[in-house]
Amino acid sequence: MSTSASADASAPIEFQAVGGPLERALIWVFIVVPTIALLPAIVFAWGGWIGWHDVVVLIVFYVITTTGIGAGYHRCFTHGSFKSRRGLKIALAIAGSMALEGPVIRWVADHRKHHKFSDREGDPHSPWRYGTSAWAVTKGFVFAHAGWVLWGQDRADPKHYAPDLLHDRDLAAISRHFRWLAAISLLAPALIGGLWDRSWHGAATGFFWGTLVRVALMHHVTFSINSICHVSGKKPFTARDRSGNVWWLAILSQGESWHNLHHADPTCARHGVLKGQIDINAWLIKQFERFGWAYDVRWPDPARLEKKRAVVS
Rank of each mutant, 00 (worst) to 15 (best):
P300R: 13
T138A: 11
Y161Q: 08
I192V: 12
F141V: 06
G206F: 07
I225C: 04
S81E: 04
G233H: 13
Q277A: 08
R85C: 11
H201L: 14
K308E: 10
H79V: 14
R155P: 03
S185K: 05
G210M: 06
G152P: 15
F207L: 14
V142Y: 03
S10C: 02
G51Y: 07
F143W: 12
V43P: 01
V33W: 05
I280A: 05
A294P: 11
A239Q: 13
D197Y: 03
A204Y: 03
E256N: 06
I285H: 02
S232P: 00
Y130E: 01
I42Y: 15
L171A: 02
I31D: 01
I27M: 08
H219S: 04
M218W: 00
A156N: 11
A264E: 15
A182I: 01
A37K: 06
S243M: 04
E256V: 03
D296N: 14
L165H: 05
I36C: 14
A25V: 06
I225N: 03
R75T: 04
R298W: 06
P163C: 11
H263S: 11
G72W: 01
L38N: 08
W248R: 03
P300W: 07
A11K: 12
W49N: 08
F223Y: 14
H271T: 06
R242M: 04
T267W: 11
G87T: 10
W200D: 07
I280C: 02
W248S: 05
W52N: 12
R24Q: 14
I285P: 04
C229G: 06
V312Q: 15
G255Y: 03
D123K: 11
D123H: 09
P103F: 05
A136Q: 15
F143M: 10
A282C: 06
T267V: 15
F207V: 01
E14R: 10
F178H: 13
H115Y: 02
R176Q: 06
T78D: 12
L171W: 02
S175W: 00
W28R: 14
D157G: 05
V56K: 07
W128C: 04
D119K: 04
V149S: 03
E14Y: 11
V108Q: 09
W248V: 10
Q16T: 07
V104G: 09
L284T: 04
R304V: 13
A216K: 08
N260D: 12
L187T: 07
L191M: 02
V312R: 14
A190K: 02
I285G: 03
T222W: 00
F237N: 10
T267N: 12
G19L: 00
T222A: 12
W200H: 10
S185A: 15
R24D: 13
I184V: 15
G48L: 12
S175N: 01
A183L: 14
H271M: 14
A303T: 09
D265A: 08
D170S: 07
W46N: 11
H271A: 08
V32F: 06
A17S: 15
W299D: 05
A11N: 09
A17C: 02
N226H: 13
R75Y: 08
A146M: 13
G19H: 02
